[in-house]
Design a protein around this nucleic acid. Structure first.
Lengths: 343, 343
DNA sequence: GTATGGTCTGTTAGCGCTATCATAGAAAAG
DNA sequence: CTTTTCTATGATAGCGCTAACAGACCATAC
């Protein structure tokens, strides 16, 4: 605790800087915000005073007075699934020189948490909201609609956005993966993923997948759902269990790459012939996959682009003042990797 | 864009609720904050009005008036290394029912970004700061010292904290791992990690490690440093390169579990005898390791406890108003796993 | 000389809320 | 029936800043 001897009791205000530099508060304010004309002599004097005092502006007061807040609320379900930190990073980078600042809220996939987090964030009057998913409680939706600021719903576009939306169709992603698997000649296909009542995107992929199989006259041969725990470990354990239970499976579709990687590692370890005897596919194209001995088939969720475009919509609107819904559907690329037979 | 027909232009204020419910603004304020005595009849009336209007309080105005802000600044270097999201989650959970709310800032390991992020956050007058690391620029340190709020430096306690600190000694962690490796009989030992000018904790582990080897009369046989890219892939590639360059290595110490896991997967794939011919160890005890075919030796960085205790210090101080430095050193456990010979 | 415009600085009035004090009325105490 | 105490509400003043306007001063133009 090396506290300065000239320690101030109160925190400093503009008035302190104003007195120290001999100009009005207004002029100090102008200097510190780089707004309006100030002679370079005064500017120097003020900056010098602010620096030596260690003045830190009070944005609370500033925001109240100017009715402008440089914050963007970003609401995501979790930080444990790397997808979300990645989107967040993309948002952060895209916001970099807009003067806007992301503020994160985490819902743990719970609608009631989402409601609470959104309420809390809106009470800080942000310039925009970026929120994961397109399914919300009535109250959440109402808040979004009445907020009077740009809203961007991200990740998913299967639904009716409140305002703008940037994402992919998870139903279609599931469908396309299903189609690719069937075309590669697999017939006894299992599915493995998170418990889905709350993870709508996983659910939609599952639905799309089921649909694609149905179109080929197939049914899913086995399914298993988990919640909690390390996805990699779960993938390993559940793959073992499912293969014991349904030994004639020739494909497993995982709802995310982490459990997929666990399954893949298990298969390699057991010497199972992948993709000959058993094909595997995941979802999300996590960076991690590059380090595995064999590349898992997957589909990119475009999280980088999603984050960037969402930020741009907010930032653009922020500048122009337009509030109108844009709806951007990105197309995920299928990355066949090495775990699905070439046709 | 389903906007209500009774769409309001302005955002609502206390006055609107006050008029709708026929009581003064003050009473509305009391109801919404649950403070002071209000008859249950008025309370209901007010809540009803607030609900139907869709009123969201303006915390900016509230904070300015009350001089209280329920935010805690949490400043971390990165979101890509899962350690930080994990600490963040722990902080978040511990803050849950304190009425405090974490706000995250990311520095990308850059001192100048740290300075900017801290300045930005302090300008919102948070109730406390949790900041990763104990090494800061002079300006950052000065801001922390003069902020007049509780500061907790986390992760690392090798140094002089500004106020409170919760963490482990990375120097000691490196030393202990070095000792364990030497005791297990390994002699030709390599090190692999991130480029360290900015990652002080990795540097300290390296220093402690070197020290421990020196005490046994050993020198590090080979080192390699990386920056950027997927750690798992890097671990694989760099391990291959290092083993080619220095084929007689009998141990590799990785500065984190991710590159360690990459190295381990490479070794298993190549059929290298682990831990007989080559021992491996990482750092951090990431959850992911549980899903690997073989458990990598590692050391827990106590990130859960760190997050929790940091939050408790802030929350406790927050309540009591005490500002005094606590210094909590946690002791990481060595988890030998399967990649280091049993003595 | 006055008019015209530019540059720089200051004054005034809030932003939307809460702390604080004041007060009306009801309940309890004498 | 008064006095005291409590409960429930309202009036007032500001939190620290910025928007908007108002000058003062200087230069240039006519």
């Amino acid at each position: 605790m090396t506290t300065n001897p000239a320690d101030q009791r109160r925190t400093l205000t503009l008035r302190d800087v104003s007195e120290a530099s001999g100009v009005s508060e207004m002029t100090v304010s102008r200097v510190l915000r780089n707004r309006g004309d100030v002679s370079s002599a005064t500017r120097e004097k003020v900056l010098e005073a602010a620096r030596t005092l260690g003045y830190v502006p009070n944005k609370i007061a500033g925001a109240l007075a100017s009715q402008r807040v440089n914050l963007v609320a970003v609401i995501i379900p979790s930080l444990s699934n790397m997808v979300f930190p990645e989107v967040l990073t993309a948002v952060s980078n895209a916001l970099e020189d807009t003067g806007l600042q992301p503020v994160v809220g985490v819902t743990n996939y719970l609608p009631e948490r989402e409601e609470a987090v959104l309420y809390e964030m809106l009470s800080w009057r942000p310039s925009g909201v970026i929120i994961a998913g397109i399914e919300h409680s009535a109250a959440t939706r109402a808040m979004l609609e009445n907020a009077g600021i740009p809203i961007v719903e991200i990740m998913d576009i299967d639904g009716e956005p409140v305002d703008s939306a940037v994402g992919i169709s998870h139903r279609r992603a599931g469908r396309e993966m299903g189609k690719a698997i069937v075309e590669a000649g697999y017939r006894r296909i299992g599915f493995m993923g998170t418990k889905m009542p709350l993870d709508h995107r996983a659910r939609k992929r599952f639905e799309g997948f089921t649909e694609a199989l149905a179109k080929a006259g197939l049914e899913i041969a086995d399914t298993e759902f988990y919640s909690g725990g390390s996805a990699l470990t779960k993938g390993r354990e559940m793959t073992e269990a499912m293969l014991k239970r349904t030994p004639d499976l020739d494909f497993i579709y995982y709802s995310n790459d982490m459990i997929g990687a666990g399954g893949l590692l298990y298969c390699l370890e057991k010497g199972i012939d992948v993709p000959g005897k058993l094909g595997l596919a995941g979802f999300n194209s996590v960076e991690l996959l590059g380090g595995l001995p064999m590349r898992l088939a997957t589909m990119d969720a475009c999280r980088d682009e999603i984050g960037r475009m969402a930020a741009e919509i907010i930032a653009g609107k922020h500048d122009s003042g337009i509030i109108g819904g844009e709806r951007i559907e990105l197309t995920p690329r299928l990355e066949p990797g090495d775990t699905i037979r070439k046709v």
